[in-house]
């Protein structure tokens, strides 16, 4: 019963999402609002500014390098959280296991 109800609700959500397609700008059009002066600046001046032919690398490590620093911080925080959750309790258990292996 709950599954059927969820199915109907999500079907309604899908219809709403799909009906918004006719209002979106057409895909693959060079005049889309997403293709604004910022992108044009990156494409026109990126190589002169950074001397890197790969414009995506030019953006993520030069124009928006602070963003990439935050990205590295997120990665660091994630690994620190994982190790603090399951890393530390394990080491004591591991030593006991090794001792059991040695004695047994």
């Amino acid at each position: 019963m709950r599954k059927i109800f969820t199915f109907i609700m999500l079907g309604g959500l899908l219809v709403v999402l799909l009906s918004s397609i006719s209002e979106l700008p057409p895909m693959g059009n060079g005049d889309n609002p997403s293709f604004n002066e910022i992108s044009e600046y990156y494409i026109d001046e990126g190589v002169e500014d950074t001397h890197a032919p790969n414009l995506i690398t030019a953006i993520i490590t030069d124009y928006r390098a602070f963003d990439t620093l935050g990205e590295a911080t997120v990665l660091f925080t994630g690994i620190a959280a994982v190790v603090s959750l399951i890393g530390i309790t394990h080491h004591s258990k591991n030593k006991e296991d090794e001792e059991d292996d040695l004695h047994g």
Binding site: T50, H51, A52, A58, T61, D62, A72, L75, F76, I79
Partner: peptide, 19 residues
């Protein structure tokens, strides 16, 4: 070339690998 880009990319690549 490209100043700090290769240096930063190398450091970040090693960091991602180790993570």
């Amino acid at each position: 070339s490209a100043g700090l880009i290769p240096v930063v990319t190398f450091a970040l690549g090693l960091k991602v690998m180790s993570t």
